[in-house]
Design a binder for these strands. Structure first.
Lengths: 177, 177
DNA sequence: GGCCACATGTAATATGTTACATGATTGT
DNA sequence: ACAATCATGTAACATATTACATGTGGCC
């Protein structure tokens, strides 16, 4: 019994939400889960094959005109697997890789102005990403309710921007210059 | 000219901050950068060898009694490489992998009570991690000033806990049950 | 004719974790 | 005697990105 990778579970989830092809899943991922769980074609297609081999999904060819197209759907086993993951109690993987924080961590090795430049770039970047997320929200959901995780993403980016605002103030205030 | 991986740069940075052996670096990483940039022995030791091959660090044997021990230090080239990274303008890698958010994303596939259980577990978990970070701060820095990134980590965990508090309220309020 | 969106897939490479092997020293 | 800490390292495996190859169909 090989435990499924989180990426495999994303795929099962996307099938449950209505996606049918690898291409579609990649698009959904880029518009929604990418921020907290990304995946590339190089993962998606091989994973779909593995999932079919283990009987959690089935596929059939459904070309659109001359464009080849393979549509997947969950089997009963796949749906069961998905649901047992969704309600499980186990610890969730939580990882951050943030090169900017790394540079801030090593800030004492460079001049104050360099740290300030870094801090200001981050404020800007986080605000841009927040705006980008809002754009996606408008585009995909318009005036309907936006999904909680989209709000989470926007608010997290804004929190970060504010944290770096505050950090800039700390740096400029207690500095004799 | 092979561009250095972020992990290689962490190593250069830790050398600049005073670490000397792979073991020491691993410890520092586990106590400080792990939260936003982790690394295992399986990365550290091979990376040190590569860095020495490219002339950015040098090592010599410095056994402590009978315990073998290899102490590294930055070369001029290594220090230059480190500093040029620290002041560079390029975009910083920023990645999150959060399985809990993934489950929240798929929340509509399960019952409300299951989502609520997930949300409450996250509140708890984020508060525990915040406490864990505070513990590290006390242990390593005591009453001295704590580094900005440590505050960042604590505050980020607390922000998360509060976000999930608020989300719980949203779920229980506009629910007819 | 040319570009973009749709669509699938692989190979090479990069990155990272886990488990294991080895052994000295310190403290209980 | 034994556990914990100091210390180095590798092999197997897992995970993920990038670049490439290939082709259709719709639109301007």
């Amino acid at each position: 019994m090989s435990t499924l990778s989180p990426t495999a579970r994303v795929i099962l989830g996307l099938l449950a939400l209505g996606d049918r092809t690898g291409y579609e899943m990649k698009q959904t991922i880029d518009r929604s889960t990418r921020f907290f769980w990304s995946a590339s074609y190089g993962q998606i297609y091989p994973e779909l094959r593995r999932l079919e081999e283990s009987g959690l999904v089935v596929s059939r060819d459904e070309p659109r005109g001359g464009v080849q197209r393979r549509a997947f759907e969950l089997t009963a086993a796949g749906r069961a697997e998905l649901e047992s993951w969704l309600v499980a109690d186990g610890p969730d993987r939580f990882e951050i890789r943030d090169e900017g924080l790394l540079r801030l961590f090593f800030g004492e090795l460079v001049g104050e102005e360099d740290v300030l430049r870094l801090v200001r770039r981050r404020q800007e970047w986080f605000r841009e990403v927040a705006e980008h997320f809002r754009g996606i929200g408008q585009e995909v959901f318009g005036d309907e309710d936006w999904p909680p995780v989209l709000h989470y993403g926007i608010e997290l980016m804004e929190w970060n921007a504010r944290w770096f605002d505050a950090h800039e103030r700390r740096l400029t205030q207690d500095d004799p210059d």
